[in-house]
């Protein structure tokens, strides 16, 4: 039996950020949904499960503050990653998450390939849907954070801005939350886990490594680039520790189940959503 070779795809800090955002986002989603549907039995049940309206509200606030601080730390991390000497390649290069022309080409190639034209796009390190998800979260965080803080301290905020901004803030907070939940629990889950080789749980984000064979199919341009630069030997890693694997499988299944429960119940109860 030959051993499979693994390639390191995510560093420890990437995985830590991901686990952090999974935990805080789940907290925000569950507590937030309990407010959104508080007039229905779903909201009541969720609220009761988490210890009543006030406790849920407290949890939501704590989660929000944690999320904002995590986001600020993430921005510091991003700034530390910018290489000032080769500014152009470090921002618009293939290792960066900033969308570039190649993504548009990949997207059009992929859409054409759905209709039988052309071949599949050769994707580099980050696919365009991953970039879309990342920037979706990146712009959603400040929006949710700022409106959330406004709603947290209405009296303080209203010593400066007129009260109708709170109406708009509440609307934006809800709408953005619904957008985030539906994007993450439908599309992000789909891209992450609903492929023949990965179903039902994609380990890459937890173990940080992917099999080389798999990677050659999914990210051919990246593997090519690594081989050309001779960096591929540096990124080779061993198989993940089985005990760690058990741990993250439990965590991953729990998160998936939680997400699916929320999105299915949310769609079921969506007729009660009022955006006012």
């Amino acid at each position: 039996m030959t051993e499979k070779t693994y390639i390191k795809r995510y560093s420890k800090i990437h995985r830590l950020f991901h686990i952090f955002i999974v935990l805080t986002f789940m907290n925000q989603a569950v507590t937030g949904f309990s407010f959104l549907f508080i007039t229905t039995d779903l909201g009541e049940k969720l609220s009761r499960l988490l210890g009543g309206y006030k406790t849920t509200f407290f949890l939501h606030k704590v989660g929000g503050v944690l999320m904002i601080s995590g986001f600020l730390i993430h921005i510091l991390y991003l700034l530390s990653k910018i290489d000032r000497r080769n500014l152009k390649t470090s921002i618009f290069g293939p290792d960066s998450l900033v969308p570039n022309l190649q993504d548009i080409k990949n997207l059009s190639q992929r859409v054409l390939s759905f209709f039988g034209f052309g071949s599949l796009p050769k994707i580099d390190r980050w696919a365009y849907w991953e970039k879309f998800g990342y920037w979706g979260v990146f712009w959603g965080m400040p929006l949710l954070g700022i409106t959330g803080v406004m709603l947290m301290f209405p009296l303080l905020i209203c010593s400066v801005v007129p009260g109708w901004t709170l109406n708009v803030a509440a609307l934006l907070h809800r709408a953005e939350a619904i957008l985030a939940v539906s994007y993450l629990f439908i599309i992000h889950f789909f891209f992450g886990h609903f492929s023949l080789s990965k179903f039902p749980l994609n380990e890459a984000m937890f173990s940080g490594r992917v099999e080389l064979e798999e990677l050659m199919e999914e990210r051919p341009a990246w593997v090519e680039r690594l081989q050309k630069e001779g960096k591929i030997e540096l990124l080779k890693a061993k198989a993940p520790n089985p005990w760690y694997r058990v741990l993250y499988f439990i965590f991953g299944y729990a998160a998936l189940a939680c997400g699916f429960y929320i999105i299915i119940k949310g769609i079921d109860y969506s007729r009660y959503i009022k955006l006012h």
């Binding site: 109708w164 109406n167 609307l171 934006l172 709408a175 619904i178 994007y183 599309i187």
Partner: peptide
């Protein structure tokens, strides 16, 4: 209020309308 609402609704619908068939 009106424009904020429609902006968000169109953003949600647009994202879903593109990515659900895509995936």
């Amino acid at each position: 209020f009106f424009y904020a609402n429609w902006f968000m609704v169109l953003l949600l619908l647009g994202t879903m309308a593109f990515f659900i068939p895509h995936s």
